[in-house]
Design a protein around this nucleic acid. Sequence first.
DNA 1: CCAAGCACCTGACGGC
DNA 2: TGCCGTCAGGTGCTTG
Length: 244
Amino acid sequence: MPELPEVETVRRQLDEHIRGLRILSVERLRSGREFPSGSAFEKRVVGRTVLRVDRRAKLLIWKFDDGTAMIAHLKMTGRFVFVEDGYAPQKHDRMIFFLNGQKLVWSDVRRFGFVKMVSSQELEEILSAYGPEPLEVSSDVLALRLVTPKTRAAKAALLNQEVIAGIGNIYADESLHRAGIRPTRRLGDLTDDDRQYLAQEIQQVLRESLAQQGTSANDYVDTRGEKVDFSISCGCMDAKVSHV
DNA sequence: CCAAGCACCTGACGGC
DNA sequence: TGCCGTCAGGTGCTTG
């Protein structure tokens, strides 16, 4: 499931393929709680040029030329998929972005994910709530995040995005396991060495996963049951469909 | 202030 | 064959 390495892999692919492109139109395929009806979203997103695609924690951020941004959270099953002309929308496709040169589908089986337009100020507020990016600070900084509250379980702390950004169930379990720390251990029971070792394992496991473009990329099959060409896709969340 | 649990949503899978 | 219960799991909200 998408955590920091998977989302970062998606970000790189999106940035590579849509940076500098303009959103000509969007086609909404299905409305729902996570994707309100009405034209407000379309009005804000259409005509915008993508300056770049950023990531913070598990959030993808399309930065636009007018200072606004579109944020997207994949949650469990959200995906961005580049498709060819003539592509027939699939059951769980929710929106198609028509850019000058790319056609991009936002798809989400379980509909936990969302895309949303925000102002620069709103974006700032949203991002300020996150803890440090684990691969952009030293392990010492991470270790210091794992001191309080003393009663909080170590795993619960890792899952809290305000403590450290981008870690989910898989990498929390993996880093705790490697560090030899039971997930239920309270932060107050950890030694300084425990914290330091755990911090280092967090960074190590994330780096390793990032190097292979996320853990679940290798056996990923898209919703049409077709193999996905990973030489031009990213992780489990973004792929060019080989045979549409 | 903090922890625990549930809601959100759908598909996959096991048991009968 | 099909129905039902359970699980998955990030995050936000409610409850204790």
